[in-house]
Design a protein around this nucleic acid. Structure first.
Lengths: 118, 118
DNA sequence: TAGATATTTAACCAGATGGTTAAACATTCC
DNA sequence: GGAATGTTTAACCATCTGGTTAAATATCTA
């Protein structure tokens, strides 16, 4: 198994566990940038969005550059790579399950065909 | 973009955000089963492990079958598929970053070659 | 039935989380 | 300088989280 930095994964997964933050990441992916603009898309106060941005920033999922009073955010997806690798290690398990399901379905389908069921 | 059930992802990512729970999943993947056995591998009380198991169960990441007084747990990785799909949508972003890094490295390498650097 | 074993539930606690509003800070514009 | 704009910080609050210990529940065994 690949050895991961546990605390990094902690931060990454925790950051992704909130739907508002996932939506913010999606907005960043589409090119949105400044705090006010991001906040307008979410039904909550500006400080709330600001906090979410800080969480994402601490998790390394966004980079912030200041141009005068406006803060420009940019998606930084690299931490997701490690998360993806972690999840990938379990792929064989869910694919195994699907294989078993497929085998089961095939078997029962054949049985119902034998019985002449439509 | 693929449409996901937000709350399912919430649960999945939140469950994965704790290192103890990720370790438990790893143990389950290796075939460990009952609560006591899983608990022995972790420096915490049995009720604490029991709580983690409940979180994993609610997130659909394990299935529990009772044989008398012992509870047999089994890894259920399918919810991870959705998480993987979500993360995958950002793959192009981190790979884009790596591409830019690669381009940068190639450029600087060529420059140092021009300068005759080893 | 009594005792041992496997596990959960209950009650509690400290600290984190996600939200609020009000105030502060930093910058730009007039 | 003073007002407007963009953003954060501070203080607060309710709820969630991850742990504890003690007690309850369920099952097996002698």
């Amino acid at each position: 198994m690949v050895k991961h930095s546990s605390t990094t994964l902690d931060c990454t997964f925790a950051a992704l566990a909130d739907p508002t933050r996932r939506r913010i990441l999606a907005h960043l992916a589409r090119g949105d940038k400044c705090v006010t603009h991001l906040a307008r898309a979410h039904p909550m106060s500006l400080p709330a969005v600001s906090k979410h941005l800080r969480v994402l920033e601490k998790a390394g999922l966004l980079r912030r550059r200041r141009y005068g009073r406006i803060h420009e955010m940019q998606l930084e997806a690299r931490p997701l790579k490690q998360a993806a690798q972690w999840v990938e290690e379990y792929r064989k398990f869910w694919e195994g399950s699907l294989d078993r399901l497929a085998a089961y379905l095939e078997k029962t389908t054949k049985q119902s065909e034998k019985k002449g069921a439509k």
